[in-house]
């Protein structure tokens, strides 16, 4: 009596996009893994300078060489992952915690709340992370927390929009009417019916915002507006390498390439997840 439904698994492995999902997952695991590993173990201590070892080329001892202060580059990258991922993750969390309820509220109430949210969107989109970071730094000074706020504020309307759009696309669906007929209140319906059905949208957006957060944090750190020493970050490493670019280009190349790979990983993961979770985007006519 049941219709024969092709299992999700089969279509997953047949999809040509599984390549990006696979690659994205692998990169993400490696990047996140090394970041976590650096809490417990590092090849070298990077908090002390060792001028005798400065600007060493890659060797069996220092796999990626050392910087102008004699610090092991690989260890710097590993510990830098903590800062970059940390700022990015907290900024995403900040954006989600504020943005999703706001978006759901706007979708549920429409009218005035909706208009208010739209105006708030306009306002926040006028302040890209660098500008809010400049403002916050100018008045409160630079730091990791201020970077998180500067980047996170921009995430709020992004998540609000995704949540609102997702909720509105469900708005006409009859199961929501049925839930109201069952006497359920708006909050209960949101948790039982709306959130589970827009969760995949939010997860995909989170990976995208995470990669944008990493880029933004790198930019802020590069300008010196990001997390301050002794915190190590990839953007800061680039800043320090800039003056040496003509005779030690590897110092700029390696952290930059690390950023590219990390961001690429999260983007690929996001793309792969979207194709996996949203069947609408899989192939079709013409």
């Amino acid at each position: 009596m049941m219709k024969n439904v092709p299992s999700e698994k089969a279509s997953f492995f047949n999809s040509r996009y599984s390549a990006s999902l696979l690659l994205g997952t692998v990169i993400t695991i490696v990047v996140v893994g090394t970041g976590v590993l650096s809490f417990f173990w590092l090849p070298f201590n990077v908090s002390s300078l060792n001028v005798a070892q400065r600007l060493q080329p890659a060797s069996a001892q220092h796999w990626l060489g050392t910087d102008q202060y004699g610090r092991d580059l690989l260890s710097m990258l590993m510990i830098g992952a903590q800062t970059s991922l940390g700022v990015g993750l907290f900024a995403v969390g900040f954006g989600m915690l504020l943005g999703v309820p706001l978006g759901l509220l706007a979708a549920a109430r429409r009218g005035f709340v909706d208009q208010l949210l739209m105006r708030f969107n306009d306002l926040v989109f006028a302040f890209p992370a660098v500008l809010s970071a400049i403002l916050i730094t100018a008045s409160l000074g630079p730091g990791a927390l201020n970077s998180i706020i500067a980047i996170g504020i921009f995430n709020v309307p992004v998540f609000a929009r995704v949540a609102r759009g997702g909720a509105l696309s469900l708005a006409g669906r009859e199961f929501l009417l049925a839930a109201r007929l069952a006497g359920k209140g708006a909050l209960r319906i949101t948790f039982e019916h709306v959130l589970p059905n827009i969760a995949s949208l939010l997860i995909v957006q989170a990976t995208i915002q995470l990669s944008m957060g990493i880029l933004a944090e790198a930019g802020l750190s590069y300008l010196g507006l990001g997390p301050q020493p002794p915190l190590v970050s990839w953007g800061r490493m680039l800043n320090e390498a800039q003056t040496l670019v003509s005779f030690a280009p590897q110092l700029a190349l390696i952290p930059g390439a690390t950023i590219v790979v990390a961001v690429l990983g999260f983007n690929l993961l996001g793309d792969g997840l979207r194709d996996l979770l949203d069947p609408k985007l899989r192939g079709g006519p013409r």
Binding site: G172, E174, A182, G183, H193
Partner: peptide
């Protein structure tokens, strides 16, 4: 007083089992 709607595809939460769906009005 309960209802049956038109669209047999849109009237269920795709993430709930039939049992849970049918039981929903029992919240009353």
């Amino acid at each position: 007083i309960q209802a049956v709607f038109q669209d047999p595809y849109g009237s269920f939460n795709p993430r709930h089992t039939v049992g849970r769906t049918v039981a929903e009005p029992l919240y009353l």
